[in-house]
Design a protein around this nucleic acid. Sequence first.
DNA 1: TTCTCTGCAAATGGTTTGCATTGAC
DNA 2: GTCAATGCAAACCATTTGCAGAGAA
Lengths: 139, 139
Amino acid sequence: MEDKWENMIKAMEAKGIRMTAQRKMIAKVFSFSAGFVLPRQIHSFISESFPGASYDTVYRNLRLLVDIGLIEQFNFNEGVRFKLKVNPDQHLHYFICTSCHRTYPLEFCPIENGIKPPESFKVMGHKFEVYGICGDCAD
Amino acid sequence: MEDKWENMIKAMEAKGIRMTAQRKMIAKVFSFSAGFVLPRQIHSFISESFPGASYDTVYRNLRLLVDIGLIEQFNFNEGVRFKLKVNPDQHLHYFICTSCHRTYPLEFCPIENGIKPPESFKVMGHKFEVYGICGDCAD
DNA sequence: TTCTCTGCAAATGGTTTGCATTGAC
DNA sequence: GTCAATGCAAACCATTTGCAGAGAA
């Protein structure tokens, strides 16, 4: 997905971030990954091009990308994972394959369905995720 | 909540688990905590009665209690937290106060509302959580 | 040239493990 | 008395930090 990659780099440049070769590689991982990736996977990918690449660079940039809203972080039991935000402006939930960690958008949002919070509870956010096994993993 | 405590101990005994003094203390923490607790908080509580209490005992027992279904684990950004299951047989979601980590049950379950998964996606589970600030924390 | 970003190395914090001892049944 | 649970210490793993040097603007 060349265009995804270019869009990501453009978005980073628009934020005034310096485009290093390592950052381009990180953007590349997210542009072709259809789901959640582990920090470890990102590190081993950029290590192919940069044998001396360090973990702290990976983590620093993941935090940066979360901060500027290009990627999102999910906390699974087995560890923290990240994925590219499909469309930063659109509110979405996901079907998540627990085998390959690919995600499939889910239009339905439960928060718009007449939920009544307890007395004087101010709703700030919510999480809705559906887990399962996708067709490709079902074998 | 004496009865919560006793019920928890009974449930543990029913599983054939040996009732040590440390385990009674851990059960006590959950019986009076209205929300999520950190392993660190559990450790410091049982340390009041057992100055030499160790972290590994806390973690071992948390895993045990999750395994037998008495408590549930949630992965927050700031760390892993645990809470007593209200009713092991009832399916519930929660309003979660991000300030005090107390929880309020939420009857609505989005999964029963005509969600259509992608082609041959087998749904195995789901997560629905609403975050906000509760009345007591609003000041 | 300037100032951010990187790699290194070391520190950190949470969690797990092996093993000898303690203690519940 | 037996076997499971504890405490200790050390290992482990993911993540973060300080700092000097490299590299983007």
